[in-house]
Design a protein around this nucleic acid. Structure first.
Length: 429
RNA sequence: GUGAUUGUAGCUCAGUUGGUUAGAGCGCCAGGUUGUGGCCCUGGAGGCCGGGGGUUCGAGUCCCCUCAUUCACCCCA
């Protein structure tokens, strides 16, 4: 084992896997554009306060999962972004985007950092793609965002995903509900686990999605937020569901779904994959009308968005065999050297082929012809081009079709022609 | 941060109640084919058995510590 290894919770993506990433990213770019979203790229680190204000200081992300640092002892604390939304909203406000147009539809693909203990489907550096629809607060906007997300999943061929959806109501709804919850749980204070006791104080809603089975019974008897919604909150939610139904997007209403970040209001949703183990959320999002004000905006800037975990998406796709057809093409021609003193000549030929747009491979490791041929075979080259003393003196080269094993000795111009024009390949037959 | 799990060749793993020079398959290199791949045969290289300490005549095997891995909890994508 080498002395150094990748830092805990980080990993390397080698070429084979990188082609999978590129494939997914291309689909994301294409579909986001289809829905009218434009790409935004924001810095990897921000002032720490941005996340404290934006995500909420009671959340675990801010409380214990941020990679923060202080480059200058007198300077402000910085933090590697643990999520995207706060940064994107900050950028939108900073540039005063809404003064240019009332609605902005942005999407991103990028790396995030959270100092958690790694496990299946969870790393300290991970990637998300997502979108933010900024400027309008309506059921249609959330539905738009959910639809794009589901469209990406469908387009990639994913099966068996579950969309769960809930509404958190508006601020007033939640305030009333919060009191009701606290009143309900208070008598059971002794029974609550430590985490839930703390949540009872800070954010009682989050007791609802506790995984502790001991809490489950209690939670089952708890009042439902749904019953505390005012008329317009209710209507809003039903309209979202209407849009989903119209688009044949299947969903389950889950009254216990409470997103972990403080900035959500009204619709919240989450998509889970059964291929993933304990960390089964592949994507999620919702509406966050309050975020902008939290970040200092004097005006309301309503918004909705989703985020999808790239790694979790890739794991699911791998398990469902969705990369099977995704093999990158080998080189058109692989040059095979007879002896090393011809290397310079062979390199010159390789250069000419490449300048002519022909994907060419040549062995630089001074290996035997047999090894070079094996390599050509391994990387699925279409042709082998032999360079030996005979070729060097006559200027005619032997081109071998590796699929049919047929070969022929030709001038370099003829070789170029065959490799360049598929129609001319019959010369070989 | 807590719990459990696993660390033996590049990879996947064997290694019996502690007992000679630690094995296999795949991969890699070479030869069989003195200018030619995929199949086959033969040979070769490659291991401080994660690290440190201890028990013992003797430790890959037992004990302790440590580092790392993986899975789970918390929480999240």
């Amino acid at each position: 084992m080498s002395q150094y290894q990748a830092v805990k919770g980080t990993r390397d993506i080698f070429p084979e896997e990188a082609t999978q990433w590129k494939y997914v990213e291309r689909v994301v770019h294409t579909l986001a554009s289809l829905y009218g979203f434009s790409e935004i790229r924001v810095p990897v680190f921000e002032y720490t306060e941005l996340f404290q204000r934006g995500i909420g200081s009671t959340t675990d992300i801010v409380g214990k999962e941020m990679f923060s640092f202080q480059p200058d002892p007198k300077g402000r604390s910085l933090t590697l972004r643990p999520e995207m939304t706060a940064g994107v909203m900050r950028a939108a406000l900073q540039k005063n985007l809404l003064s240019l147009a009332p609605v902005h539809k942005l999407y991103y693909i990028g790396e995030l950092f959270r100092k958690e203990r790694p496990q299946a489907g969870r790393q300290r550096q991970f990637s998300q793609f997502g979108s933010e629809l900024i400027g309008v607060s309506s059921p249609a906007a959330v539905a738009e965002v959910i639809t794009l997300m589901m469209h990406v999943f469908e387009s990639l061929g994913l099966r068996g995903l579950k969309l769960r959806i809930n509404t958190l109501g508006d601020g007033a709804d939640r305030a009333r509900y919060r009191e009701a919850l606290q009143a309900y749980f208070a008598p059971f204070h002794e029974i609550l686990d430590d985490a839930s006791k703390e949540r009872l104080e800070k954010n009682p809603l989050r007791i609802l999605d506790s995984k502790n089975p001991a809490m489950q019974e209690l939670v089952d008897g708890a009042p439902r937020l749904y019953d505390y919604l005012n008329g317009s909150s209710l209507q809003d939610f039903e309209k979202v569901l209407f849009y989903l139904a119209e688009r044949n997007i299947a969903y389950d209403i889950d009254h216990r779904l409470v997103r972990g970040l403080d900035y959500y209001s009204h619709t919240a949703f989450e998509v889970t994959s059964s291929e993933l183990g304990a960390q089964d959320a592949i994507g999620g999002g919702g509406r966050y009308d309050g975020l902008a004000r939290e970040l200092g905006s004097t005006a309301d800037v309503p918004a909705s968005g989703f985020a999808v975990g790239m790694e979790r998406l890739l794991i699911t796709m791998e398990k469902q065999g969705l990369f099977a057809a995704l093999n990158s093409p080998g080189p058109q021609v692989s040059i095979v050297l007879q002896q090393q003193d011809l290397l310079d000549h062979a390199l010159q030929i390789a250069w000419r082929l490449r300048k002519a747009g022909i994907k060419t491979e040549i062995d630089l490791a001074a290996r035997s012809m047999k090894a070079q041929m094996r390599e050509a075979n391994r990387i699925r080259a279409s042709y082998a081009l032999f360079v030996g003393t005979a070729e060097y003196t006559t200027g005619n080269y032997t081109l071998k079709n590796l699929a049919t094993s047929e070969q022929r000795t030709l001038s370099l111009d003829a070789v170029l022609q065959i490799l360049h024009e598929p129609a001319a390949r019959e010369l070989l037959e």
